[in-house]
């Protein structure tokens, strides 16, 4: 059997960032939703397992600090490292993304036999990235307001805090929905990769797969590699 050529799609630094983000998100979502749905069996179970609401708050804030750390790490990563900066440029939304998205839909519906022209990051990938960036930013800001509410209220009136609380609470739900319903499906749960892709651990995809899913990137970077192997 011909051995598959594996390509490292994500570097170790990216995988570490992803892992830290993943850990902080899981803790934040579980403890956050437990508070939001405190009357449900889920809320009661989680809060009891954590050892009460005070302990829940400590877990939540611990994960928040981790998230803030990852956010800063990532910020410096895309500004000060060459590779990080290139990657950032790749993930920036462009007009042709709309065209690609449209083509993907057509392909999925069977209206067109051609794959969309996709570089390293497909429109859903970009959407998720920017959703995480925006969502995290909003959550960090509102979270800090709630964390230091007495200080925040030196500036903000009580009603603003109340709105902040609602925003924080619903934004958390949005992030949970994006991750559970979309991100997990795309990367792990879809029929092709079910039950799990190992990419988040080793960062590798097969060249074959990459060629199908990211034709532009394949042309740009791996055409030569494939030819050599032939």
């Amino acid at each position: 059997m011909e051995e598959k050529i594996m390509i490292e799609r994500f570097t170790r630094s990216q995988r570490v960032q992803h892992f830290l983000l993943l850990v902080s998100f899981i803790i934040l979502i579980v403890t956050g939703l437990a508070l939001k749905f405190h009357d449900s069996w889920f809320g009661k179970l989680v809060i009891t397992l954590e050892g009460g609401v005070i302990a829940r708050g400590i877990f939540h804030r611990f994960a928040a600090v981790l998230l803030i750390f990852v956010a800063f790490y990532h910020f410096f990563y895309i500004i000060f490292t060459r590779y990080g900066h290139d990657e950032f440029l790749l993930v920036l939304p462009k007009f042709k993304d709309f065209k690609a998205a449209f083509q993907s839909v057509k392909f999925t519906l069977g209206l067109s036999a051609e794959h969309a022209e996709i570089d390293k990051y497909a429109p859903p990938d970009k959407f998720q990235y920017w959703a995480v960036v925006a969502g995290s930013f909003l959550m960090i800001i509102t979270g800090l307001v709630l964390w230091y509410q007495t200080q925040a209220m030196l500036v903000l009136p009580k009603w603003a805090i109340d709105i902040t609380r609602v925003v924080h609470s619903y934004q958390g739900v949005i992030i949970a929905v994006v991750i559970l319903l979309w991100h997990l499906y795309i990367v792990h749960l879809n029929p092709k990769r079910f039950p799990m892709s190992r990419i988040w651990i080793d960062g590798k995809v097969s060249l074959e797969e990459l060629k199908v899913e990211h034709p532009l990137e394949y042309e740009r970077k791996y055409q030569g590699v494939a030819d050599e192997n032939k």
């Binding site: 007495t150 200080q151 030196l154 500036v155 903000l156 009136p157 009580k158 009603w159 805090i161 109340d162």
Partner: peptide, 12 residues
């Protein structure tokens, strides 16, 4: 809430 400001009263 040590140091609570007047903003505490602005809102329900």
């Amino acid at each position: 809430h040590k140091g609570a400001s007047e903003n505490f009263a602005k809102g329900k």
